[in-house]
Write a protein that binds this DNA or RNA. Sequence first.
DNA 1: TCTGGGGTCCTAGGACCC
DNA 2: TCTGGGGTCCTAGGACCC
Length: 407
Amino acid sequence: MTPQIRRIAHLDMDAFYASVELLRYPQLKGLPVVIGGGRRKVDEAIEQLAEGQTRADIPVEAFARLKDYVGRGVITTATYAARQFGVGSAMGLMKAAKLCPDAIILPVDFEQYRHFSRIFKETILEFTPLMENRGVDEVYIDFTDVPGGQRQGGRALAKLIQQTIFERTGLTCSVGVAPNKLLAKMASEFNKPNGVSIVLEEDLQTMIWPLTCRKINGVGPKMDEKLINNGITTIGELAAKDEAWLVANFGKSTGAWLHRASWGRDDNPISLSSEPVSISRETTFDRDLHAVRDKAELGAIFTELCDKLAGDLQRKGYLGKTIGIKLRYDDFKAATRDQTLDVYTADPKTIRQAAGLCLKRIPLTKRLRLLGVRVGGLVASDGEVERAVGNSLQTSKEDLISNMFDE
DNA sequence: TCTGGGGTCCTAGGACCC
DNA sequence: TCTGGGGTCCTAGGACCC
């Protein structure tokens, strides 16, 4: 019996948000489209529709263009037609407007994306239960033992899954198959959109080593810059470095990890279930606010964030005990404060009070562009815990109030 | 015309306990 | 007038990812 080769696949929906929108607005197919704003224009156009007409009947001229957009925000997704202009994810809308002023801009609609995300994942689960979630549009799966998983390096099965997803959703995805998650993730980028790529152990030198270090999942802009400053541009150059040298320059854990990654080694398992560690809400203001001059406005936003966060916790069934806030100043520097309570809570007033105390501990001289509230130290809010917390909630609140007077 | 909104994980120092 | 060593929790910041 020949030993099974580990087949890990990374599946990644192509331009997910934008592609979902194109299903509703087929008239935009082939045009540069970005997701991130323009809600008012779309709402107006929908209102103008005659009886029996759908979104597909909205004339192309009725959509908002990037050049008409004013305000803060970034692009979450761009169609491939828009990417031709150099427009891409996480780019500021103002900058994108310069590159492609006539691109159509559509608002995000998470409900739609969640719907298609569910079909995407349910389809995959019909092939294997060994699936790890990586957000709405990405998963890792292990199909080592799935019938057909060993054929053609996994290509046949990967294509079958990809085809089934397309039949169910009308959306394409890209698939990378490799012996581990690290390589599978890189492989899925080789052939976008709608590609299938196989990377075997013996392909390391030819397929992986020529890539830049930035292609390693976990190497971001900072680490990449540091590597380049040390004369390391490609993964091959990284692999040529002594592990001891990497440890000396990047620390024990990161150094050792960089060495392993450059040699295509990764033994992280597929993680089947994940409980959240924290839940948060944050918002960037339309204009920078001043703690004193805009106190009322800031206070109202603060309370609203806490209310929404408490709603999220309750809806998702969690209680938390570490309450934190996050600020971003006009110079984009961030500050955080948090406080661990002696009880678990999902109560908006308790969260608001604790977050208020955190806010008092931060200097507020600079103007603010963002405010966020976070609850960590989560536990599921079923039976026992909830009762225990219910009893101590009052005590906890009174403590907080007396703390405020103590100051 | 810079830079959204959710998240995770790591590091590092201090408190506190044994 | 000495001062170890380990473990855990808390807090702040930062890198990174989708």
